[in-house]
Amino acid sequence: MEPDQPSQPGRRSVLVKLGTAAGVAALAAQGGIVLRSLVANVSYDTPSRVRLGLPGAFPDGLTLVSDARVFVSRQGKRFRVLSAVCTHLGCTVRAEASLRQDPSDPDTRKATQVFELACPCHGSRYRTDGSNLSGPAPGPLPAYRLILAPGDGQLVVDLDEEVAPDVELAVP
């Protein structure tokens, strides 16, 4: 027995280390797997391509399509789609009309109607082309790719594809 004695603590400590390592690995795997399971693999969110309606259904000017959270802008036969989601913290902006006096002529009683997009959450304001006017919003409202559906001729917006603000869709 005596010659074996020095090797016994070595074997024991190896087994202890192996056991500890296996235990820690099992705990880490459990934790990692639980955390990974919380990251969704399947999305049940609204699809990024949304049918907005026939071009004729939109009057000239801005129209809010609330379920897609976008503004459809129409000028004659030219269409654009602008996001209605504030770039600051994701609230839905509203189109507002207000009366403004001409600052160069304060004595006049004449005022013009000004249209702006305003966020109710933190007071960011945008021009109707999406560019920033005031408030904490860090960037302009993005414009999205707009196409005509080949079958029924409806306007279809792709919320995953941003385009330059001056890109328009001309409808025949």
Binding site: S66, R69, C91, T92, R94, P120, C121
Partner: peptide, 9 residues
């Protein structure tokens, strides 16, 4: 209502 943000929120 995810479509309408109350004012103020």
């Amino acid at each position: 209502n995810p479509e309408v943000t109350p004012n103020p929120a």
